[in-house]
């Protein structure tokens, strides 16, 4: 049996080690992080819809369309990261690298929808 106070001492020692390394323990406000991610995903959905429309109008097939999606997605992420380079993304997100892959799957569906829609409207109805 471990005495609870002993456990707490151990925890506190671990905390001390952490705090001596970093200075102050990190504290995240989950609400505002959620808001930040929401803002970014808003932009990404908009971009994916735009990209889907363009892909449909240009009439991309099969793999070309998906390659175009990846191109649009990563162009946006690159521009975003370069633009926000000064304002330090690590202050606004827990894991700033997650931008590179997090919404890749969720923004694919709007892209496919608009891609199919414009592809059909422009190229297949006569």
């Amino acid at each position: 049996m471990l005495h609870p106070q002993q456990i707490q001492q151990q925890q506190q020692q671990a905390n001390e080690q952490q705090s001596s390394l970093i200075g102050i323990p990190e504290h995240f406000d989950a609400e505002y992080i959620a808001r930040n991610t929401k803002v970014v995903s808003f932009c990404q959905i908009l971009i994916s819809i735009l990209g889907g429309s363009i892909a449909g109008v240009l009439g991309f097939n099969d793999l070309k369309g998906f390659a175009f999606y990846l191109f649009v997605y990563y162009t946006f992420v690159c521009i975003f990261v370069l633009k926000e380079k000064k304002s330090k993304l690590s202050l606004y997100f827990i894991n700033p690298n997650a931008i590179w892959y997090e919404t890749l799957a969720s923004t694919l569906m709007p892209f496919i929808l608009f891609w199919t829609f414009f592809y059909n409207i422009i190229h297949h109805y006569k």
Binding site: S41, I45, L46, S48, I49, S106, P110, I112, L113, T116
Partner: peptide, 18 residues
């Protein structure tokens, strides 16, 4: 087409209705 719209419209809803 209906299913495609269904899955894709979640993104649109997030923008227009959000």
């Amino acid at each position: 087409w209906y299913f495609l719209c269904w899955f894709g419209s979640e993104g649109i809803n997030a923008i227009v209705l959000g």
